[in-house]
Design a protein around this nucleic acid. Sequence first.
DNA 1: CATATTAAGTTAACACTGTTAGCAAATGTA
DNA 2: TACATTTGCTAACAGTGTTAACTTAATATG
Lengths: 198, 198
Amino acid sequence: MLVKNNRQKHKELTKKAILEVAQEIVLLEGWQAVSMRKIAEAIGYSLPVVYNHFENKDAIQEEFVKNGFNMLAMAMQTTLEQYTEPEQQLTQMALTYYEFAFSNAAYYKMMFGLGIPSCQKANEIAEIRNFGAIVIKVITSLMAQSDEHRKFLKFHTLWSILHGLTSINMVNHTAAPDEMQQQILLDAIQGFIKNINR
Amino acid sequence: MLVKNNRQKHKELTKKAILEVAQEIVLLEGWQAVSMRKIAEAIGYSLPVVYNHFENKDAIQEEFVKNGFNMLAMAMQTTLEQYTEPEQQLTQMALTYYEFAFSNAAYYKMMFGLGIPSCQKANEIAEIRNFGAIVIKVITSLMAQSDEHRKFLKFHTLWSILHGLTSINMVNHTAAPDEMQQQILLDAIQGFIKNINR
DNA sequence: CATATTAAGTTAACACTGTTAGCAAATGTA
DNA sequence: TACATTTGCTAACAGTGTTAACTTAATATG
């Protein structure tokens, strides 16, 4: 049994190594630069070994998507706990979202790149639902007497604003957001909050 | 000279043929399914002939991006001319944007797919600026006394809301937007208009 | 008209990519 | 020790974008 544990431990380690190596390439050159052969070489094994840990390349990407949403959710949860006023919570969380997207641009692009295979499975991924739950929590405190349907609607609106601002900026600049971009964000969030109860 | 014209005409025709063939594949299977060899075979020429008309695959994609923004700009211009009230114009144009994105999902994904090479050149592409000019025109009629900076800020906010709603929906469904999605859009636009003058 | 020049189109290759079949060696179990 | 299973390997398949070298056809020039 102990030997078996060693086997399992070794298996987990190489799986971790694969993800670490992949992340290194992702952060430096983006996802499109990641190849199964590069990974294999970097972990010191032959090509098919990678396929023993991940069914295919998309499976590796899915791992990054999940990881990314977890990181985002954690960052927003932390911000949420730093404030008490709901409006301030929401505004600060929006800034956190924005900052996450540009500090982890490679991750963000993987999470939202349109047309990628993993996107079709988006609603099945628990990590995304978990992220949504945190945001809805704050929205609830701003519109307590509303029904679930309206809260969900508002969540979608807010997320759209955040993601829209983020991705439009990535397309236009591929650089960190400047003063004006942040002003746009605050402007949009302000409008969102003002309009939240009809 | 007449013969030379025939030569040029023939060259333009094959270039057109390349784009038509590529579009056929894009609409059926998406951009990732397009390959230079498939194009060559479909137009009845050998591989390098495609490279005589387009420097590389990215150049073909850029053509689609430009084309897509032209289509979008035309659709919104048409909607703009059908109404007189600025608020109604803006609302209807938002719906047009939304409808365009889902009726031409393959195009839209090419226009906004994060991390694609053409995106780094986005601000250089005239077609995108042209699209922006049309939207700013309507925004101006809603906030005439404001300065250019504020108008541009509001344009970005609106575009972000539109693109955000669109892409979030594509990630979650990859299907046409339903009743509720449209409600979210109208809700967001309403908030945007209400907040447009402070 | 014959000839030199340019353009068009060809085949073949390079250097990659994801993925898998078939086989050898190391390990765990009886 | 003998059998079964996992682990890892090499080699290949079927693609991909891209380019060099060559042939053939069309044009322009003497």
